[in-house]
Design a protein around this nucleic acid. Structure first.
Lengths: 132, 132
DNA sequence: CTTGACTTTGTCCTTGGGTCAAAGTTTTAG
DNA sequence: CTAAAACTTTGACCCAAGGACAAAGTCAAG
């Protein structure tokens, strides 16, 4: 099948399919005599896999690593678990950062409201200078 | 002072200073007869402001908006409050998404561990396929 | 045979800079 | 004073992960 059909079957865009192929996540697709890419059902399975993995917020590089391991017949759940653990750790760090940011934003907003309540509406607002 | 000194004084890189100037966050810097940019203490204050605002995760565009308002003498805490409110709302949505993702990752990891515990170490790991 | 739908490659755009190159300038050390 | 080191300039290319668009070729249906 051609790129449009393969993309539809996997629930992604043709552009994404070409990008992923160019990044080596898919083996190079076959070509017709006129240059059109030809995809197999196996390719579609890989495309679906990539889509699912992206839903877990894995980067294309991480997904490529897993796919390479699979191709070498070496993908063990232990390896995937390690990958997910590292990913979860990263995510937790991000969320910690965001929580801290959220508190800072709340403080900044409170400062803004207080300043406003004191009727200093027309002066330059120094909220941000005071948060750092 | 020149770009390096200004950058040091503000705690940012020269590259960032040039970028921010090119995006209009800074007024165009003066130049020496040989083309070197000249920055004033006021410029450094603006650079610090941008750095603080970035610490609040505001985009350069948002920061530029605030700076433009300031230049028109029109920055009221009401406007900044509105900007921060919108930003906080966006942040909360992001965190909600991340929490959902975290649960999905936890489930995926549990599946991996369970599969591994059943001694299927050598088979292709189907964790990701089962999470979508 | 023509029209429309599809595909190809290519380019530019996004965010916020990092990195490198070639060339000119300034400063510092000897 | 001069040579080297440090700094600055512009420009170009790079990252993620595609989106949008263009020009040109191809395929299928009427």
């Amino acid at each position: 099948m051609k790129v449009g059909q393969a993309a539809d079957a996997a629930g992604v865009t043709p552009k994404a399919v070409r990008l992923w192929e160019s990044k080596g996540l898919l083996p190079p697709a076959g070509r017709t005599s006129t240059g059109y890419r030809i995809f197999t059902d196996e390719d579609v399975r890989i495309l679906r896999f990539i889509r699912q993995a992206k839903a877990l917020d894995l980067s294309l590089e991480e997904i490529g690593d897993v796919l390479d391991l699979q191709r070498h017949g070496a993908v063990t759940c232990g390896k995937v678990t390690a990958l997910l653990d590292a990913h979860i750790e990263r995510l937790d760090r991000t969320m910690t950062d965001l929580k801290r940011l959220r508190r800072t934003l709340d403080r900044a907003r409170k400062t803004a409201r207080d300043t406003r309540a004191r009727g200093q509406e027309a002066v330059v607002c120094h909220i941000i200078e005071n948060t750092g």
